[in-house]
Design a protein around this nucleic acid. Structure first.
Length: 511
RNA sequence: GGCGAAGUAGCUCAGUCGGUUAGAGCAGCGGAAUCAUAAUCCGCGUGUCCGGGGUUCGAAUCCCUGCUUCGCUACCA
C-alpha cells in the first residue's frame, strides 16, 4: 500500500474575497500535493471555507440576505478561483455542512462530559459598537468606542492543562512547527501561562454558529468550530478506515494564524485523544511593490489583478512565481517587474527557447522523429546522472516544503541542457556525423522531457502541452526516469509555450 | 517594556561542525556563436559579510556591546 499524505490549506473565511494571500497558500499546497502524487503517495488534499461567526452574520445583515446565502455566494467565489487554477483538491469542505456540524457537536459533548469544558463568568471590557470583548490593553489604548464593563457567562475549554505536554511535544518533534522562526515564536508564547479558551458565544450576541450540544443558549466559538474541519473531512466519526489512513495532516497556513494552529488546535486534539498534526508550516506574507498591501495605496493584489497577470503570461506562470519567490520564511515582495522578468528569463529564455532549438533541430535533421541514440559519451552519462541527482534533491526539498529551492533546482538542470548543446553543437555535427548529432539531440530531449516532468506540478497546463508536442503518449506526472524516452516517435508541430513578454508593455499599462 | 529573528554584491538571497583567493540567480558591461523566442554560451564584482570590542593560529560563522529592521506578546477572523 502506498504511503498516505494529507495536506490542508486553512479554511478561508467567507468575509473576504480571495486575494494573493489565499491564492498563494492554496497553490503551494496544490503543488506539494501534486509532487506527492508523482511520488506515488496516496494524497488527500483539502481546502474549503469557514462560514460561521459574527462578521458573516453582520455582512449578511448589511446586504439584506441570510447568512446562508452570504456563505453560498462567497464559497462560490473561492471555488471559482480554484477551478480557474485547476486545483487538484480532493475535497472542499464548508463548516456549515451537516457532516461537520455533527463532528463539532460530538467533540464538544465528549469534552463536556469529561469535564474538560466548564461554565464560568467572564468579566471584562465590551465594545458595544464592535460587539466584542476587548483586552485590558486595547481598553487602555482606547482603540474601541462604546466600551463598557459587562460580565457574561460562557463555556471554557481547559486549554491551560495542555501547556506542558505541548511544549514537550514541540521540543521532541523539531519538525512539528516550521519554519524555525515560527517554532521559536510558539515556544516563546508558551513560556507564559496558558489561559483557558472561551469556546462559546451567547446566542443573543451571535446566532450564526453551531449550537452547543449541552446548552441551546449558546453557539460555538468560530475557531473551535473551524479547526475541527481538518478531522471532519477525512472522515472522523464517519469513516474510521479513511480517517486512520490520512490523519494526521500537514497544515499549510499563513503566519497570521500561527497561534490558533499551533496552540489551540493541538490542545483540542490532545483533549480529544487524537494524534497531533504531522506538521504545521506557517509561511510569510506578500508585500506588493515594496509596500504592505493596501486598498488605498492601490497595490492590493485581488482577484482581478491576479487574472490580469494570468492573461498576459498564463496561469502557470502565476503558480510558478508563487513557488519560486514565495514567502516561506519571511515576507516576499511581489513586484510586477520581477514577475515578468522572471517569466522571460526562466520560462521564455531558459526553458521555452530550449524547447524551440531542440524541436527545430530534430525537425530539420531527423524529419521530426526522435533520433535513436548511438553510444553515450561521458557527457550524456553526466546529463543522466545529474537528472537523477536533481530528482533526489527535488524530493528532499519537498520533504521540507521548500518549494523555493525545489524550483531553483529544476531550473538549474534546464540551464545545464542549454550549456550541453552549446558544447556539443549538434547543428554542426549534423552536417557530417548524423549519428553523433542524433545522440546529442536524443540526450538533450531526454533531459528536456525529464525537466518538463519535474516541472509539471509547477506548470501543469504548459507541461501537458509539452508532452502533447512530444507525442510519446506519456502522462507528464508519470515520467521520473531520464533514459526511458522512446526513439522514433514523430514529434508534433511545435508551438511556443512561453512567448517572450515585452517588458515595455508594462510601462504603458496602468499601475 | 518582555521574548525572538534578521542585517552578506544594484536586487533577491545561499553560506552545514569557525579554516585556504566569501558564493548563486537576476539585472549591468564585454566577447563568442548563429540550431533557437535578439533567445544561448563564455568572461567581468577592491562587497568595511551593519558598527565597535573580544575569544582564537584563524570568524560572515562563537561571545559582549551599540545601531537598524521585522515578528510575537492570544480568546477579531
Amino acid at each position: 500500500m502506498s504511503p498516505s499524505f494529507y495536506i490542508t490549506t486553512p479554511l478561508y473565511y467567507v468575509n473576504d474575497r480571495p486575494h494573493i494571500g489565499s491564492a498563494y497558500t492554496t497553490l503551494i499546497a496544490d503543488i506539494i500535493a501534486m509532487y506527492h502524487r508523482m511520488k506515488g503517495d496516496d494524497v488527500y488534499f483539502l481546502t474549503g471555507t469557514d462560514e460561521h461567526g459574527q462578521k458573516v452574520q453582520q455582512a449578511a445583515e448589511k446586504n439584506g440576505i441570510s447568512p446562508r446565502e452570504h456563505c453560498d455566494l462567497y464559497a462560490a467565489r473561492f471555488r471559482e478561483l480554484w477551478s480557474y487554477f485547476n486545483l487538484s483538491n480532493d475535497d472542499f469542505i464548508r463548516t456549515t455542512e451537516e457532516r461537520h456540524v455533527r463532528v463539532v457537536q460530538t467533540v464538544l459533548r465528549k469534552l463536556y462530559d469529561e469535564g474538560q469544558i466548564y461554565k464560568d463568568t467572564y468579566d471584562g471590557w465590551y465594545s458595544v459598537a464592535d460587539e466584542l470583548f476587548i483586552s485590558e490593553k486595547d481598553y487602555q489604548e482606547g482603540k474601541y468606542r462604546d466600551v463598557r464593563r459587562i460580565s457574561e457567562s460562557n463555556y471554557y475549554f481547559r486549554m491551560s492543562d495542555y501547556r506542558e505536554r505541548l511544549i514537550r511535544h514541540i521540543q521532541e518533534h523539531p519538525d512539528f512547527i516550521a519554519p524555525e522562526n515560527r517554532r521559536n515564536e510558539i515556544l516563546g508564547f508558551l513560556k507564559q501561562p496558558l489561559k483557558d479558551l472561551c469556546i462559546s458565544r451567547p446566542k443573543e450576541r451571535l446566532s450564526w454558529g453551531i449550537e452547543l450540544p449541552f446548552d441551546d443558549q449558546y453557539v460555538t466559538y468560530v475557531w473551535f468550530d473551524a479547526l475541527l474541519n481538518y478531522i471532519t473531512a477525512p472522515g472522523y466519526l464517519q469513516d474510521a478506515e479513511k480517517f486512520d489512513r490520512y490523519w494526521p495532516a500537514v497544515h499549510l497556513i499563513g503566519k497570521d494564524i500561527l497561534t490558533t494552529h499551533c496552540v489551540y488546535w493541538p490542545a483540542m486534539l490532545m483533549a480529544a485523544g487524537l494524534p497531533l498534526p504531522a506538521k504545521i508550516f506557517a509561511h510569510g506574507w506578500w508585500t506588493s511593490e515594496g509596500q504592505k498591501m493596501s486598498k488605498s495605496l492601490g497595490n492590493f493584489i485581488d482577484l482581478d489583478t491576479i487574472r490580469e497577470h494570468c492573461e498576459r503570461v498564463g496561469k502557470d506562470m502565476y503558480r510558478y512565481f508563487m513557488a519560486k519567490e514565495g514567502p516561506l520564511q519571511n515576507d516576499s515582495d511581489f513586484s510586477r517587474e520581477r514577475f515578468y522578468q522572471t517569466y522571460n528569463s526562466d520560462l521564455a529564455n531558459d526553458f521555452g527557447n530550449l524547447v524551440n532549438r531542440i524541436f527545430k533541430l530534430i525537425g530539420k535533421f531527423y524529419e521530426g522523429k526522435i533520433p535513436t541514440p548511438a553510444k553515450f559519451s561521458p557527457d550524456e552519462e553526466a546529463l543522466k546522472a545529474n537528472a537523477e541527482q536533481c530528482r533526489v534533491k527535488v524530493f528532499e526539498y519537498l520533504q521540507e516544503l521548500n518549494v523555493n529551492a525545489l524550483t531553483a533546482e529544476i531550473l538549474r538542470y534546464v540551464s545545464s541542457l542549454n550549456r550541453y548543446l552549446e558544447i556539443k553543437e549538434p547543428w554542426k555535427l549534423a552536417k557530417n556525423d548524423t549519428a553523433a548529432a542524433g545522440t546529442v539531440l536524443y540526450a538533450a530531449l531526454a533531459g528536456l522531457r525529464f525537466s518538463a516532468a519535474l516541472l509539471y506540478p509547477l506548470l501543469p497546463e504548459k507541461m501537458r502541452e509539452f508532452f502533447a508536442m512530444l507525442n510519446t503518449g506519456e502522462a507528464p506526472g508519470s515520467v521520473l526516469e531520464w533514459d526511458t524516452l522512446p526513439a522514433g516517435v514523430q514529434l508534433q508541430e511545435m508551438i511556443a509555450l512561453f512567448p517572450r513578454f515585452d517588458l515595455s508593455l508594462l510601462e504603458s499599462s496602468a499601475q
